[in-house]
């Protein structure tokens, strides 16, 4: 790491130096305020009554803290005709994300292991083809996918959404594991082959125990992707199977009744909570996934 600090040219006084340092912190602080402001507004708004929202200030703290909006958002807000809050949709998202993450991570691990350690002719081309799949705009597969899900009999179901997320998550999970396993010398696999271990034994006994960091990165990445997905959710779900992002959008844009901004904000925070929690708990791995997903690892 370069030890480089913006400092005034030699000979300038201590005062100038201090001034520069302070303006540096002021600039950083300014950005901190900007970035935190929406979250702050969301939280405070969700704790205010509608009356206070109408009369009060956007950034003012609530005069009277009430959790009514949270309760409504969780179990009473209307998404179109039904008024059950985001609760059922939250669980839908869990039901989609958990198997979706598990399956795509497992398949990605095996794929990456094959591509990196069992190189055969054509493996790199297959990998390139899979990698390209990560970059397509999904609009281009929406129409045929809707039909194929219908043919498979899983249109509008949770299973259908899991299937879609696994298929289009494979490219990234394979990329993550491939880039990780490619740094492990092939000699390790060779030694294990001479020792008599086969494909699965080598994976299970040697590679899997090495893989914890990349598993964490992949799981976080996939979880964030699937939880935050809206396009697949809105395209391939029906009334009872929508994920929480779709439900949130429906609540916010529902035209019936009075606009309850506090409920909207509470619902938004609920929808954001799982991924925010993951970010706070395992931010390091989250960032590693982001950068690995964009720059090649």
């Amino acid at each position: 790491m370069a030890d480089l600090v913006i400092s005034p040219a030699r000979g300038q006084s201590q005062a100038v130096r201090l001034l520069l340092r302070w303006s540096l912190y002021a600039a950083l602080g300014f950005f901190v305020v900007i970035y935190l402001m929406p979250l702050f507004v969301m939280v405070t708004t969700s704790l205010k009554s509608l009356e206070e929202i109408r009369t009060g200030d956007l950034v003012a703290l609530p005069r009277e803290v009430t959790f009514d909006a949270w309760l409504t958002a969780w179990s009473g807000a209307c998404t179109g005709i039904k008024c059950e809050g985001v609760q059922p949709y939250f669980w839908n998202s869990v039901l989609i994300a958990v198997p979706g993450v598990a399956i795509s991570t497992l398949i990605g691990a095996i794929n990456g292991y094959v591509v990196a350690q069992w190189r055969f002719r054509g493996a790199n081309i297959i990998f390139a083809l899979m990698l390209f799949g990560c970059f397509i705009p999904f609009q281009v597969v929406l129409l045929p996918m809707a039909r194929v899900l219908g043919i498979m009999g899983i249109a509008g179901t949770i299973q259908g959404l899991i299937f879609v997320h696994v298929v289009y998550g494979l490219g990234f999970t394979t990329l993550f594991f491939r880039n990780y396993y490619v740094t492990i010398p092939v000699e390790l696999t060779k030694a294990a082959k001479v020792d008599g271990a086969g494909f699965f034994r080598i994976f299970w006994s040697i590679f899997l125990p090495l893989s914890l960091p990349i598993i964490v990165v992949t799981v976080i990445w996939q979880f964030t992707q699937i939880w935050n997905d809206f396009l697949f959710g809105v395209s391939f779900s029906q009334a009872g199977t929508q994920p929480v992002t779709v439900a949130l959008n429906n609540i916010v844009n529902s035209t019936t009744g009075v606009k309850e901004y506090n409920v909207d904000m509470a619902a938004a925070i609920i929808a954001a909570f799982p991924t925010l929690l993951v970010y706070v708990v395992a931010g390091k791995y989250f960032i590693r996934g982001l950068t690995a997903g964009s720059v090649k690892g």
Binding site: P185, E187, K190, A191, K193, V194, G196, S205, L210
Partner: peptide
């Protein structure tokens, strides 16, 4: 296959299993 050839091999990088 290698496992049935009754051989043993020592590698340049030693290829020791890191987690064992």
């Amino acid at each position: 296959s290698p496992k049935d050839r009754n051989i043993a091999m020592v590698f340049q990088s030693y290829a020791l299993y890191p987690t064992m």
